[in-house]
């Protein structure tokens, strides 16, 4: 944990609460506050934060339903700096890549690019390399996820690319979604608890009904699980190797999103289904993020194959060794 986490979190909380609806203004404010440089090392002019810091800020962004590619820019700048790629202009990352890198030339399609049209350059991984491509070189089309967040398609034909060694962009993208989801689930739970405490039906508060209590308890346990998984994945990522932990955390988060969003809408009744009420900015994002950077099947099958390749008796010793290594590092 960096020493300045409290300060950054305070700054972010104030900023997120005051954001308006104009994208250009909002992203400029977040950049000016230094939040997009949170994961950039101090030597590169950044904040030098760790994944624990990112977790704190992105959970807040998730809770405030911030409609910005904050995590994406944060991650892109960290990866670009680590790979010696240019930090100039506004960066984003690709959620999916199809194509080939031939020499310094890329032909292919990047899809699910958050705010791709608003970015100057995009990072993607292909053929074992981390690529930096200029958006101006692409045929670009707007697409949006169910929450209305831009997830654009960029088609490149023999476009110039600078590149560095592959650095786990997709997995770290998944970690961003875990951290945002942790905040959004937490906020949806709080909203639900407040609502059932205030809403009277049949002469008493909804909270007084055992069926409602049991449903929200289940929701709370899922939120707790996501929090634990997020913290575990961040610790592993800060230790350098989170190959298993990020996949496990994204999958666990995806599962929790299913349980949590259903419970939140159920206890809210019809009001939660309206445009004016503040539940859908959270739940529509959660439904979107469940699909992004690996849906349930993607991570479940991938983890399953990695585990079975090691043999039935290897799982336990390996999973405990992965946390024991963190203790040895710390002591």
């Amino acid at each position: 944990m960096s020493d300045n986490r409290d300060m950054v979190v305070d700054t972010a909380a104030r900023l997120f609460a005051a954001l308006g609806s104009d994208y250009a203004t909002n992203i400029a404010e977040v950049e000016a506050a230094g939040l997009t440089d949170l994961l950039l090392p101090a030597d590169d002019g950044g904040f030098g934060g760790d994944w624990g810091d990112a977790a704190a800020v992105l959970a807040l962004a998730g809770a405030h339903a911030v409609a910005l590619p904050l995590g994406e820019v944060m991650l892109a700048r960290r990866l670009a700096a680590a790979g010696g790629l240019s930090l100039n202009g506004r960066l984003t990352i690709a959620g999916a890549t199809q194509g080939r890198l031939t020499g310094d030339s890329f032909t292919g399609t990047l899809s699910q690019v958050p705010w791709g049209l608003e970015a100057d350059a995009v990072l993607a991984e292909a053929d074992g390399r981390l690529l930096r491509l200029a958006v101006a070189d692409a045929r670009a089309a707007r697409a949006i996820n169910p929450a209305g967040e831009p997830r654009d398609t960029l088609v490149f034909e023999r476009a110039p690319a600078t590149s560095a060694s592959e650095a786990g962009l997709f997995a770290q993208g998944a970690l961003l979604r875990v951290l945002q989801s942790a905040g959004a689930l937490d906020a949806a739970l709080k909203l639900s608890v407040d609502y059932v405490n205030g809403r009277q039906q049949f002469g008493r508060a909804l909270a007084a009904f055992q069926a409602v209590q049991q449903l929200l308890s289940q929701f709370a346990v899922e939120v707790a699980a996501v929090r634990a998984a997020a913290a575990g994945a961040c610790e592993a990522a800060d230790a350098g190797d989170a190959a298993f932990e990020i996949g496990a955390a994204k999958l666990r988060t995806n599962i929790a999103i299913g349980v949590g969003t259903a419970a939140a809408h159920q206890v809210h009744g019809a009001i939660g289904f309206t445009q004016d009420y503040s539940l859908h900015p959270l739940t529509r994002r959660l439904w979107s993020w469940r699909s992004e950077f690996g849906n349930d099947a993607y991570w479940a099958v991938r983890l399953g194959h990695e585990i079975t390749a090691q043999g039935a008796d290897a799982f336990w010793p390996q999973v405990v060794a992965r946390t024991d290594r963190l203790n040895r590092r710390a002591s």
């Binding site: 666990r252 599962i255 479940a300 399953g304 999973v319």
Partner: peptide, 14 residues
Amino acid sequence: VAALIGRTAAELWT
């Protein structure tokens, strides 16, 4: 089968 193993591992780890 792989998906069930992956999911079980993720839940157990959490």
